[in-house]
Write a protein that binds this DNA or RNA. Structure first.
Lengths: 339, 339
DNA sequence: GAAAAATATGTCGACGTTGTCATGCGTCTG
DNA sequence: CAGACGCATGACAACGTCGACATATTTTTC
């Protein structure tokens, strides 16, 4: 392999001078610099990161540890956000996923240590509370889309489920809806409670009574093996004599079933019933007809900011573990009518 | 940082002996081995990969270079397959995505080189033909879910779109369907042609005439900014006086619109019209009511086998660049009725 | 015009690991 | 019992890079 030494030989300088050119250090004549650069090009030299790391004991690498990569396909945007940040800032990303198994998690931490990772981004594919196997290792860590269960103060970045659900609820209320159905997310997800709270609070503030709301559980059970009541719940809701004029679906995926339930009853969307989702999972929200009004989870931004935050933690500039929150923007499409 | 030297000091042996214990080499007394292992545990020593690599000039790392990670969310299963293989075989994965930009691609190859990657997995999120910026670099490469445009002989692994579509078509024919609609994928996707060919050939073999088939384009245009005709096409098809009894949708995502179009016309699924998809994108296929019969793209397997194949290429045991294909298994659910 | 400062380049060692070779010791062979 | 052999261990160098320090050359300063 071509190393700094071979370049030095060809350029007729010492290897230190080559090193200087590579790292853009001062005190190199323009002429020497050109000669070295030409040698680098001719030989196709590329610096060896491993050697660099060994020398500087900084790997410039972040690790991503994720739980279920594939089950919530849309949240890979978090990963994309991280990667884009890394790319722009010259960091390398090492990625691993646990599949939910904690033995895997331990193995991955070991692997990260052996690569002398500078920091870890602990990412979950659902917004939830976790109990990571960290602590004993002592690598700076930022949690993305989740928060630690224990009192361990780890910085985290999460979506603002509450604000998103509040905005969606307001959106419906402002358009005159006074009978609203709500289909709840799986309660094991952190978003479930936050979104429902926001819905309850916002409708209450607006003067709606409990009897104006129909709230049903859409899913329950462990991730990947949930029981699904969405279709039945939506059907039941829409068959009430005083049926809701709008339904808030726990997320976009569940909204598919709400659409189908409504249509099977001969109801038109949005003329007879308005529907909103949550997540802006575009594979769904843009495929539905009419397209779905929803609140977008800021996945990409979570990744971007998470990486940024980790960077400042590693650099030591972030002293107290801050917990940030990112807003869920309402995406207005065509599934809601004004009454 | 605790290194092999500190361990040696604590255990009272030379660093070479520690190295022997770590690598499970023979010629170490049981007693010494234990002493060393205890020291390793006590100090929390973890081997430094960078140093190892520099010494052995093998990084034991594979790179993944992917195009659009997030736009086809389900195909992240490819990545999961690769990671699982890597995890099981002690390899590290470096991942980067181009977002479709070829300047990015060049940058990524440089990055891979600087990490002295052993091999590269070139992954596309849609099954398509690509023209990668490889070749000049000389890193062993395996293509997953795509094939090279040029005559460059690179080993590749692809899904068998043809077989999947053939099986789906047969499935419909065997259940008595003789008028079948087909909504085509975006023609820029390799699967589009393969699936359509299989559909045409299989219906032809069965004796159906062209007039028994209604074939419409569902989408076209660049990835991420397609024009979407699916709903209109499905609606038109189903309004024909001699309407098809079954519709094959180019993929599951498009099937959502076929469902909605059918229901909007008051047709029941599957009693009035049967529908099949393609991909088994479970977020959709399991959310639809009735659940969607489809052909599963073997994404996870592609990743697993791709990594395996790359490994043998790197090891030099794979001489001729083989092009493998993996079958798309039919997943029978409830969206098709027998006539 | 000599001393001080700035610029340009080189030498050397260290990072953590492992391959090569050497050494020491006990056991077997004839 | 001498030589050969197997086993257990250690000394040392090298991988590629860069920081610390040294040296050489030019420019500035008073």
């Amino acid at each position: 392999m071509v190393s700094i030494v071979s370049v030095a030989k060809v350029a007729g300088v010492s290897n230190k001078t080559v090193s200087r050119v590579i790292n853009g250090e001062p005190y190199v004549t323009e002429e020497t610099r050109e000669r070295v650069e030409r040698a680098i090009r001719d030989l196709g030299y590329v610096p060896n990161m491993a050697a660099r790391q060994i020398r500087s004991s900084r790997s410039n690498t972040f690790g991503i540890i994720a739980d279920y990569v594939s089950t919530t396909p849309y949240s890979v945007d978090i990963v994309r956000g991280i990667q884009d940040w890394a790319n722009a800032n010259g960091k390398t990303i090492l990625m691993a996923n646990t599949g939910g198994a904690s033995e895997q998690e331990i193995k991955i931490w070991k692997m990260f240590q052996s690569h002398r990772i500078d920091g870890v981004l602990y990412v979950t594919m659902y917004h939830r509370i976790v109990d990571p196997e960290i602590g004993d290792v002592g690598i700076p860590t930022v949690m993305i889309n989740c928060r630690p269960q224990t009192s361990e103060l780890l910085p985290s970045i999460e979506p603002d489920d509450y604000q998103g659900a509040r905005d969606l609820t307001r959106y419906l209320l402002e358009r005159g809806h006074r009978k609203i159905g709500y289909i709840r997310l799986n309660p094991i997800l952190l978003g479930a409670e936050l979104r429902l709270d926001a819905f309850r609070k916002t409708t209450g503030d607006f003067g709606l009574a409990d009897s104006d709301l129909t709230i049903r559980l859409g899913m329950e059970g462990p991730v990947g093996a949930e029981k699904n009541y969405v279709f039945a719940a939506a059907t039941e809701m829409l068959q009430q004599k005083d049926r809701p004029t709008a339904i808030m679906s726990g997320n976009d995926e569940m909204a598919i079933q709400v659409y189908i339930a409504a249509m099977a009853l001969g109801l038109r969307i949005p003329e007879d019933v308005s529907i909103v989702g949550f997540d802006d999972f575009r594979t769904v929200s843009l495929a539905l007809r009419p397209e779905l009004t929803t609140a977008a989870l800021p996945y990409y931004g979570l990744g971007l900011q998470g990486a940024e935050l980790l960077n400042s933690v590693v650099a030591g500039s972030e002293v107290c573990p801050s917990s940030r929150v990112m807003s869920c923007n309402l995406v207005e499409r065509l599934s809601v009518s004004s009454l």
